[in-house]
Amino acid sequence: MSDLVSSGALNLASVVVSVLLLVVGLVLWFFVNRASSRTSEQIELLEALLDQQKRQNALLRRLCEANEPEKPAVEEKAVEAKNEDEDDFIRLVAER
Rank of each mutant, 00 (worst) to 15 (best):
A73S: 03
M1A: 13
F30V: 14
A66G: 03
N67P: 00
E84I: 05
L28H: 06
E70H: 05
S40V: 09
D3Q: 14
V32S: 09
E68K: 02
V19K: 14
A78W: 05
S2T: 12
R55P: 01
E47D: 06
S18K: 11
A73C: 00
C64V: 10
V5K: 10
D85T: 15
R62Y: 06
D3R: 15
L28N: 09
Q53W: 08
V5F: 08
Q56M: 04
G25I: 02
L20A: 10
P72T: 03
K77E: 15
L21R: 07
A35V: 14
G8Y: 05
A48M: 06
V24M: 04
E44D: 13
V15N: 12
A73N: 01
E76F: 03
V23F: 03
A66S: 08
A78T: 06
T39P: 04
E65I: 00
E44F: 05
L92M: 10
V17G: 03
K82F: 02
V15A: 14
R91L: 06
L21F: 04
N83E: 12
L22Y: 09
S6Y: 03
L20P: 00
V15W: 07
F30L: 13
V74L: 00
L28M: 09
R55M: 05
E76L: 10
L28C: 10
M1P: 03
L60I: 02
V17I: 08
T39I: 11
V16Q: 11
E47Y: 04
N67I: 09
A58D: 13
Q53P: 01
K71Q: 08
A9C: 11
E47I: 03
S6I: 07
S7E: 07
V93F: 02
E75M: 06
V79L: 08
N57C: 04
A35K: 15
R62C: 05
D88R: 12
D85C: 10
E76M: 11
V74K: 02
E76Q: 11
S37G: 10
A9S: 15
F31I: 07
D85R: 15
S36E: 15
S7Q: 07
L10T: 14
E65H: 02
S14A: 11
Q52Y: 05
A81K: 15
E44G: 07
I90K: 15
F31Q: 07
E75D: 07
A35N: 15
D51A: 06
R91I: 02
A81H: 14
S14N: 11
E68P: 00
E41L: 03
